[in-house]
Simulated scan of single mutants.
Amino acid sequence: MAGAPDQRQPGPAAGEQLQQPQVSCQVFPERLAQGNPQQGFFSSFITHNQKCQQMLLKTVETNPYVKLLLDAMKHSGCAVNKERHFSCEDCNGNVSGGFDASTSQIVLCQNNIRNQAHMSRVVTHELIHAFDHCRAHVHWFTNVRHLACSEVRAANLSGDCSLVNEIFRLRFGLKQHHQTCVRDRAILSILAVRNISKEVAEKAVDEVFESCFNDHEPFGRIPHNEKYARYAHRDFQNRDRYYSNI
């Protein structure tokens, strides 16, 4: 997750059901209470949902970050199905999307995702959480350090802290600014979905930051823009071909 207006909730990877104790959740309270996607005012307008679906389709088919993550998920045995594992719907507040643990879906907030670039960042961010869950035993709800690690990775690898995005936020030009952005957004993400103090969130992020910031899988590098993401995708495909021939 990242802080407002890009709040997202991590959870189980697509295709899996993770049995976890119920915890306080500030992102999708209606979904957790009802067990169904919330239908808001704009959801009655089919064109609103169609726009979300069209942006999602374009992201899945063309965005190099997403294409690499989908390949990596499939390679790890957690293939993602667009119809099953993504849901466009209305969300409360300024939430952009998240993982719904009860349905193993990436929720895309059709009333808050502003444009194609925003859609791509949200999908990329959530797929990083899904990839982390697929490859490791992540205890999202019981171990804040696990959550912090995935949030650090998502902020670092999804483009959330790209130079362009930081310029739009009027935050740039500082020494080691990328690291500072990743740390700050990881903390904001944790606070958005967990009822804990800022001090606890900061401590968790600081404890895992070095190792998780330097974990670049499945990209192999920090993809600062789509050009680097395309290179990373090419390298991943070549690596996959190499291992398949061993």
Rank of each mutant, 00 (worst) to 15 (best):
M1S: 15
A2W: 03
A4G: 10
D6Y: 09
A14M: 13
E16P: 07
Q22R: 13
Q26K: 11
R31G: 00
Q39F: 05
S43W: 08
S44P: 06
S44I: 15
I46W: 15
C52V: 06
Q54D: 12
K58V: 10
K58S: 15
K58R: 07
K58C: 13
T59R: 12
V60R: 02
N63Y: 02
L69W: 08
L70S: 06
C78T: 01
A79R: 11
A79T: 10
S87P: 06
D90P: 07
D90C: 09
N92H: 14
N94E: 08
G98L: 04
G98P: 07
A101C: 07
S104G: 15
N111S: 05
I113S: 00
R114Y: 12
H118W: 04
V122Q: 06
H129V: 01
A130R: 00
F131L: 04
C134M: 05
H139F: 06
V144L: 14
S150T: 08
V152G: 02
V152P: 04
C161F: 01
S162G: 05
I167K: 10
R171G: 03
Q176Y: 04
H178C: 00
Q179E: 13
C181Y: 00
R183Q: 12
R185K: 02
L188I: 09
S189L: 10
A192C: 12
I196L: 09
A204C: 09
E207R: 06
V208H: 03
C212T: 01
D215P: 14
D215H: 04
H216Q: 10
E217N: 15
E217I: 06
G220N: 08
N225D: 11
E226F: 08
H233F: 07
R234S: 06
D235L: 09
F236R: 05
N238F: 08
D240W: 10
R241T: 07
